[in-house]
Simulated scan of single mutants.
Amino acid sequence: MDHREVRDLLGRYRLGRCTDAEKALIAEWYAQAARQQPDLPGDPEAARAESWANIMGAVHAEHTFEARLRPVHWGRVFYAAGAVAALLCLGFFWLGGGLSQNQNGAAARMLTASTLPGEVRTYRLPDSSLVTLNGGSSVRYPEVFGAKVREVTLTDGEAYFDVKHNASHPFIVDAGRTRTQVLGTVFCVRAYRSLADVRVTVASGKVGVRNASGYSDTQTAFLLPDEQLVVDNRSGRAQKERVNARSLAGWLRGAMDFNNEELRTIALLLEKKFNVPVRVENETLGIQRLTARFRAEETLDDILGTLAMAGNFRYRHATGQVLITMNEH
Protein backbone atom coordinates (compact mmCIF):
# COMPACT_ATOMS: atom_id res chain seq x y z
CA MET A 1 0.00 0.00 0.00
CA ASP A 2 1.62 3.27 -1.09
CA HIS A 3 1.31 6.71 0.54
CA ARG A 4 -1.56 7.84 -1.71
CA GLU A 5 -3.59 4.70 -0.96
CA VAL A 6 -3.00 5.14 2.76
CA ARG A 7 -4.11 8.77 2.58
CA ASP A 8 -7.29 7.80 0.72
CA LEU A 9 -8.00 5.09 3.28
CA LEU A 10 -7.60 7.49 6.19
CA GLY A 11 -9.82 10.00 4.45
CA ARG A 12 -12.60 7.42 4.14
CA TYR A 13 -12.10 6.49 7.80
CA ARG A 14 -12.53 10.11 8.86
CA LEU A 15 -15.74 10.34 6.83
CA GLY A 16 -17.08 7.05 8.20
CA ARG A 17 -16.90 5.27 4.84
CA CYS A 18 -14.47 2.44 5.66
CA THR A 19 -15.38 -1.23 5.39
CA ASP A 20 -15.03 -3.48 8.45
CA ALA A 21 -11.78 -4.86 7.02
CA GLU A 22 -10.35 -1.35 6.54
CA LYS A 23 -11.33 -0.37 10.08
CA ALA A 24 -9.58 -3.48 11.36
CA LEU A 25 -6.42 -2.53 9.44
CA ILE A 26 -6.34 0.95 10.99
CA ALA A 27 -6.90 -0.55 14.44
CA GLU A 28 -3.91 -2.83 13.82
CA TRP A 29 -1.77 0.22 12.98
CA TYR A 30 -2.47 1.55 16.45
CA ALA A 31 -1.68 -1.78 18.06
CA GLN A 32 1.52 -2.27 16.06
CA ALA A 33 2.76 1.24 16.86
CA ALA A 34 2.04 0.75 20.55
CA ARG A 35 4.17 -2.40 20.59
CA GLN A 36 7.04 -0.70 18.72
CA GLN A 37 7.20 2.62 20.55
CA PRO A 38 8.55 2.38 24.12
CA ASP A 39 7.21 5.81 25.16
CA LEU A 40 3.60 4.75 24.54
CA PRO A 41 1.59 2.61 26.99
CA GLY A 42 2.04 -1.13 26.50
CA ASP A 43 -1.68 -1.73 26.17
CA PRO A 44 -2.73 -1.10 22.52
CA GLU A 45 -6.09 0.31 23.52
CA ALA A 46 -4.47 2.64 26.02
CA ALA A 47 -2.00 3.80 23.36
CA ARG A 48 -4.84 4.42 20.97
CA ALA A 49 -6.75 6.44 23.55
CA GLU A 50 -3.66 8.44 24.50
CA SER A 51 -2.94 9.28 20.84
CA TRP A 52 -6.44 10.61 20.30
CA ALA A 53 -6.40 12.53 23.59
CA ASN A 54 -3.06 14.20 22.82
CA ILE A 55 -4.15 15.30 19.38
CA MET A 56 -7.59 16.47 20.43
CA GLY A 57 -5.91 18.48 23.17
CA ALA A 58 -4.01 20.41 20.49
CA VAL A 59 -7.18 21.45 18.72
CA HIS A 60 -7.99 25.15 19.17
CA ALA A 61 -11.36 26.83 18.94
CA GLU A 62 -12.84 27.64 15.53
CA HIS A 63 -11.04 24.69 13.86
CA THR A 64 -7.57 26.16 14.39
CA PHE A 65 -4.77 23.62 14.75
CA GLU A 66 -1.23 23.92 16.03
CA ALA A 67 1.89 21.91 15.19
CA ARG A 68 3.10 19.91 18.17
CA LEU A 69 3.96 16.47 16.75
CA ARG A 70 7.10 14.41 16.82
CA PRO A 71 8.91 13.33 13.61
CA VAL A 72 7.28 10.38 11.88
CA HIS A 73 9.14 7.77 9.82
CA TRP A 74 6.76 6.37 7.18
CA GLY A 75 6.99 2.60 6.75
CA ARG A 76 5.45 0.48 4.06
CA VAL A 77 2.45 -0.60 6.12
CA PHE A 78 2.64 0.29 9.79
CA TYR A 79 2.64 3.89 11.05
CA ALA A 80 3.10 5.50 14.43
CA ALA A 81 -0.16 5.69 16.37
CA GLY A 82 0.21 9.43 16.91
CA ALA A 83 0.75 10.00 13.19
CA VAL A 84 -2.32 8.00 12.19
CA ALA A 85 -4.49 9.86 14.67
CA ALA A 86 -3.09 13.18 13.50
CA LEU A 87 -3.92 12.36 9.90
CA LEU A 88 -7.47 11.44 10.85
CA CYS A 89 -8.09 14.51 13.01
CA LEU A 90 -6.15 17.29 11.37
CA GLY A 91 -6.81 16.90 7.67
CA PHE A 92 -3.56 15.06 6.84
CA PHE A 93 -1.12 17.07 8.90
CA TRP A 94 2.30 15.46 9.05
CA LEU A 95 5.98 16.21 9.52
CA GLY A 96 7.89 16.31 6.27
CA GLY A 97 11.58 15.80 5.66
CA GLY A 98 14.09 18.61 5.43
CA LEU A 99 15.49 21.17 7.82
CA SER A 100 15.52 24.96 8.14
CA GLN A 101 17.45 27.35 10.37
CA ASN A 102 15.72 28.50 13.55
CA GLN A 103 16.38 31.69 15.52
CA ASN A 104 19.47 30.21 17.15
CA GLY A 105 20.99 29.10 13.84
CA ALA A 106 20.26 25.44 14.54
CA ALA A 107 18.41 23.18 12.14
CA ALA A 108 14.62 23.33 12.53
CA ARG A 109 12.22 20.60 11.53
CA MET A 110 10.00 21.31 8.55
CA LEU A 111 6.27 20.73 8.96
CA THR A 112 3.57 20.21 6.36
CA ALA A 113 -0.15 20.87 6.79
CA SER A 114 -2.56 19.58 4.16
CA THR A 115 -6.26 19.21 3.47
CA LEU A 116 -8.35 16.67 1.61
CA PRO A 117 -10.56 17.73 -1.30
CA GLY A 118 -13.69 19.29 0.16
CA GLU A 119 -12.01 20.31 3.42
CA VAL A 120 -11.27 23.82 4.67
CA ARG A 121 -9.03 23.97 7.75
CA THR A 122 -7.13 26.60 9.69
CA TYR A 123 -3.68 26.09 11.23
CA ARG A 124 -1.70 28.28 13.63
CA LEU A 125 1.86 28.98 12.50
CA PRO A 126 4.84 29.31 14.89
CA ASP A 127 4.44 33.12 15.13
CA SER A 128 0.67 32.81 15.82
CA SER A 129 -0.21 33.85 12.27
CA LEU A 130 -3.09 31.82 10.83
CA VAL A 131 -3.31 30.00 7.51
CA THR A 132 -6.57 28.57 6.19
CA LEU A 133 -6.23 25.92 3.48
CA ASN A 134 -8.77 25.27 0.76
CA GLY A 135 -9.51 21.71 -0.37
CA GLY A 136 -6.59 19.72 -1.74
CA SER A 137 -3.96 22.19 -0.50
CA SER A 138 -0.69 21.92 1.40
CA VAL A 139 1.71 24.38 3.02
CA ARG A 140 5.22 23.73 4.35
CA TYR A 141 6.96 25.72 7.09
CA PRO A 142 9.62 25.37 9.82
CA GLU A 143 8.69 24.38 13.35
CA VAL A 144 10.43 27.60 14.48
CA PHE A 145 10.84 30.60 12.19
CA GLY A 146 14.31 32.00 11.52
CA ALA A 147 15.82 35.10 13.08
CA LYS A 148 15.41 37.29 9.98
CA VAL A 149 12.29 36.16 8.11
CA ARG A 150 9.17 34.02 8.52
CA GLU A 151 9.07 31.91 5.38
CA VAL A 152 6.50 29.32 4.25
CA THR A 153 5.89 27.49 0.98
CA LEU A 154 2.48 26.86 -0.52
CA THR A 155 3.36 23.62 -2.26
CA ASP A 156 -0.08 23.16 -3.82
CA GLY A 157 -3.55 24.66 -3.65
CA GLU A 158 -4.99 27.81 -2.12
CA ALA A 159 -4.27 29.42 1.24
CA TYR A 160 -5.65 32.43 3.12
CA PHE A 161 -3.06 34.05 5.41
CA ASP A 162 -3.82 36.26 8.41
CA VAL A 163 -0.31 37.40 9.29
CA LYS A 164 0.68 38.71 12.70
CA HIS A 165 2.44 42.07 12.28
CA ASN A 166 6.18 42.08 12.94
CA ALA A 167 8.11 44.94 11.30
CA SER A 168 11.50 43.35 11.93
CA HIS A 169 10.59 39.91 10.58
CA PRO A 170 8.97 39.94 7.11
CA PHE A 171 6.55 37.12 6.29
CA ILE A 172 7.28 35.43 2.95
CA VAL A 173 5.16 32.99 0.95
CA ASP A 174 6.78 31.03 -1.88
CA ALA A 175 4.16 29.68 -4.30
CA GLY A 176 4.81 28.35 -7.76
CA ARG A 177 7.26 30.81 -9.31
CA THR A 178 6.25 33.75 -7.12
CA ARG A 179 7.47 35.16 -3.83
CA THR A 180 5.09 37.30 -1.74
CA GLN A 181 6.40 39.42 1.16
CA VAL A 182 4.44 41.21 3.89
CA LEU A 183 4.94 42.52 7.42
CA GLY A 184 1.41 41.87 8.64
CA THR A 185 -1.75 41.65 6.57
CA VAL A 186 -4.55 39.41 5.27
CA PHE A 187 -4.17 37.96 1.80
CA CYS A 188 -4.85 34.86 -0.29
CA VAL A 189 -2.55 32.90 -2.60
CA ARG A 190 -3.86 30.41 -5.17
CA ALA A 191 -1.20 28.19 -6.71
CA TYR A 192 -2.60 24.80 -7.68
CA ARG A 193 0.09 22.94 -9.59
CA SER A 194 -2.22 22.05 -12.46
CA LEU A 195 -3.28 25.67 -13.07
CA ALA A 196 -1.48 27.98 -15.49
CA ASP A 197 -1.06 30.89 -13.10
CA VAL A 198 -0.57 32.00 -9.50
CA ARG A 199 -2.99 34.54 -8.03
CA VAL A 200 -2.32 36.75 -5.02
CA THR A 201 -5.30 38.69 -3.63
CA VAL A 202 -5.11 41.23 -0.79
CA ALA A 203 -7.91 41.72 1.74
CA SER A 204 -6.10 44.20 4.02
CA GLY A 205 -2.66 45.77 4.36
CA LYS A 206 -0.05 45.82 1.59
CA VAL A 207 2.01 43.07 -0.02
CA GLY A 208 4.84 42.87 -2.53
CA VAL A 209 4.90 40.04 -5.09
CA ARG A 210 7.95 39.16 -7.16
CA ASN A 211 8.06 36.62 -9.98
CA ALA A 212 10.92 34.16 -9.96
CA SER A 213 14.38 34.97 -11.24
CA GLY A 214 15.09 33.56 -14.68
CA TYR A 215 12.16 35.20 -16.41
CA SER A 216 13.03 37.72 -19.10
CA ASP A 217 11.19 40.38 -17.11
CA THR A 218 11.67 39.95 -13.35
CA GLN A 219 9.75 42.54 -11.39
CA THR A 220 7.96 43.28 -8.11
CA ALA A 221 4.37 44.48 -7.88
CA PHE A 222 2.77 46.05 -4.80
CA LEU A 223 -0.85 45.27 -3.97
CA LEU A 224 -3.36 47.11 -1.79
CA PRO A 225 -6.75 45.85 -0.52
CA ASP A 226 -9.06 44.51 -3.25
CA GLU A 227 -6.21 44.15 -5.70
CA GLN A 228 -5.13 40.89 -7.29
CA LEU A 229 -1.97 39.98 -9.18
CA VAL A 230 -2.13 37.15 -11.76
CA VAL A 231 1.29 35.72 -12.67
CA ASP A 232 1.60 33.39 -15.67
CA ASN A 233 3.69 30.36 -14.71
CA ARG A 234 5.30 30.01 -18.14
CA SER A 235 6.17 33.56 -19.10
CA GLY A 236 6.25 35.23 -15.69
CA ARG A 237 4.07 37.98 -17.10
CA ALA A 238 2.01 39.66 -14.36
CA GLN A 239 -1.28 41.53 -14.52
CA LYS A 240 -2.87 43.53 -11.72
CA GLU A 241 -6.66 43.71 -11.39
CA ARG A 242 -9.28 45.28 -9.11
CA VAL A 243 -11.40 42.60 -7.44
CA ASN A 244 -13.74 42.01 -4.52
CA ALA A 245 -11.41 40.18 -2.15
CA ARG A 246 -14.21 39.15 0.20
CA SER A 247 -16.17 37.48 -2.60
CA LEU A 248 -13.13 35.66 -3.93
CA ALA A 249 -12.48 34.31 -0.43
CA GLY A 250 -16.02 32.92 -0.28
CA TRP A 251 -14.53 29.40 -0.16
CA LEU A 252 -13.72 30.11 3.50
CA ARG A 253 -17.49 29.91 4.08
CA GLY A 254 -18.07 27.10 1.57
CA ALA A 255 -19.23 29.41 -1.24
CA MET A 256 -17.71 29.58 -4.73
CA ASP A 257 -17.02 32.73 -6.74
CA PHE A 258 -15.70 32.53 -10.30
CA ASN A 259 -14.46 35.84 -11.70
CA ASN A 260 -13.84 35.52 -15.46
CA GLU A 261 -12.30 32.07 -14.90
CA GLU A 262 -11.52 29.56 -17.64
CA LEU A 263 -13.80 26.52 -17.58
CA ARG A 264 -10.82 24.19 -17.09
CA THR A 265 -9.90 26.17 -13.96
CA ILE A 266 -13.49 26.01 -12.71
CA ALA A 267 -13.43 22.25 -13.29
CA LEU A 268 -10.36 21.88 -11.07
CA LEU A 269 -11.85 24.03 -8.30
CA LEU A 270 -15.06 21.99 -8.39
CA GLU A 271 -12.99 18.83 -8.21
CA LYS A 272 -11.15 20.10 -5.13
CA LYS A 273 -14.41 21.07 -3.41
CA PHE A 274 -16.55 18.03 -4.19
CA ASN A 275 -13.80 15.38 -4.43
CA VAL A 276 -15.06 14.18 -7.84
CA PRO A 277 -12.86 14.30 -10.97
CA VAL A 278 -14.24 16.88 -13.42
CA ARG A 279 -12.89 16.64 -16.97
CA VAL A 280 -13.33 19.09 -19.86
CA GLU A 281 -13.07 17.03 -23.04
CA ASN A 282 -12.47 19.88 -25.48
CA GLU A 283 -9.56 22.34 -25.38
CA THR A 284 -11.58 25.14 -26.97
CA LEU A 285 -14.32 24.62 -24.41
CA GLY A 286 -11.75 24.54 -21.61
CA ILE A 287 -10.54 28.09 -22.26
CA GLN A 288 -14.05 29.55 -22.31
CA ARG A 289 -14.37 32.11 -19.50
CA LEU A 290 -17.28 32.35 -17.08
CA THR A 291 -18.29 34.53 -14.13
CA ALA A 292 -20.69 33.21 -11.50
CA ARG A 293 -21.29 33.06 -7.76
CA PHE A 294 -22.71 30.12 -5.82
CA ARG A 295 -23.88 29.66 -2.23
CA ALA A 296 -22.32 27.13 0.13
CA GLU A 297 -25.38 24.86 0.12
CA GLU A 298 -25.49 24.43 -3.66
CA THR A 299 -24.56 20.98 -4.95
CA LEU A 300 -22.20 20.01 -7.76
CA ASP A 301 -25.18 19.45 -10.05
CA ASP A 302 -26.66 22.83 -9.08
CA ILE A 303 -23.44 24.56 -10.05
CA LEU A 304 -22.80 22.61 -13.24
CA GLY A 305 -26.41 23.03 -14.35
CA THR A 306 -26.15 26.81 -14.08
CA LEU A 307 -22.73 26.93 -15.75
CA ALA A 308 -23.90 24.64 -18.56
CA MET A 309 -26.68 27.05 -19.47
CA ALA A 310 -24.35 30.06 -19.33
CA GLY A 311 -21.52 28.35 -21.22
CA ASN A 312 -23.66 26.35 -23.66
CA PHE A 313 -22.13 22.96 -22.83
CA ARG A 314 -23.29 19.60 -21.53
CA TYR A 315 -22.11 17.48 -18.62
CA ARG A 316 -22.73 13.94 -17.45
CA HIS A 317 -21.67 11.64 -14.62
CA ALA A 318 -19.70 8.63 -15.86
CA THR A 319 -17.62 6.00 -14.03
CA GLY A 320 -16.93 8.07 -10.94
CA GLN A 321 -16.21 11.32 -12.73
CA VAL A 322 -17.95 14.23 -14.44
CA LEU A 323 -17.39 14.83 -18.15
CA ILE A 324 -18.00 18.25 -19.71
CA THR A 325 -18.55 18.25 -23.47
CA MET A 326 -19.64 20.58 -26.26
CA ASN A 327 -23.33 20.89 -27.00
CA GLU A 328 -24.40 19.01 -30.11
CA HIS A 329 -26.04 21.23 -32.70
Rank of each mutant, 00 (worst) to 15 (best):
Q321H: 08
V59G: 11
G176S: 14
V280H: 02
L15K: 15
A212D: 11
T220I: 14
L125K: 01
G82I: 03
E151P: 03
G146F: 08
V243F: 03
F187Y: 06
R193K: 15
A212R: 00
A308D: 00
V243I: 00
L323F: 03
N166I: 10
E66M: 12
A310N: 07
T64G: 11
E283K: 13
H169S: 14
D302S: 13
R190E: 12
A86F: 09
A249F: 02
D2T: 07
D156H: 14
W251D: 03
R68L: 08
T112L: 15
L111W: 08
F294Q: 00
W29A: 04
A49P: 01
V139A: 13
E119D: 15
A191D: 01
S204E: 15
P38D: 07
A113N: 05
G176T: 10
V144D: 03
R246M: 12
P38H: 03
A83K: 00
S194K: 12
E5L: 07
V77C: 10
N244C: 04
L304Q: 05
H63I: 12
K164P: 01
R124M: 10
A27G: 13
L224M: 14
E143C: 09
F258V: 11
V276H: 09
Y315K: 01
M110I: 05
R210L: 14
L270R: 06
N233D: 15
T64R: 12
L40G: 07
Q36Y: 08
A221W: 04
E151L: 04
T185L: 02
Q32E: 05
C18D: 09
V278Q: 04
T299I: 07
L252C: 10
V209M: 00
W251R: 10
V173T: 04
G254E: 03
P71S: 06
L90G: 00
E66F: 12
A108M: 07
G82C: 09
F187K: 01
G254Y: 03
A318G: 09
A49D: 08
R4T: 13
A107Q: 15
L99D: 13
N211M: 07
F313S: 01
F294D: 09
V209P: 06
F222A: 11
W52S: 07
L269E: 10
N104T: 15
L90C: 06
L229C: 05
R124P: 06
L95N: 14
L10F: 06
N282G: 11
E328C: 11
L285T: 01
R179Y: 01
G208S: 12
P225S: 08
T265M: 02
P44K: 06
T319S: 15
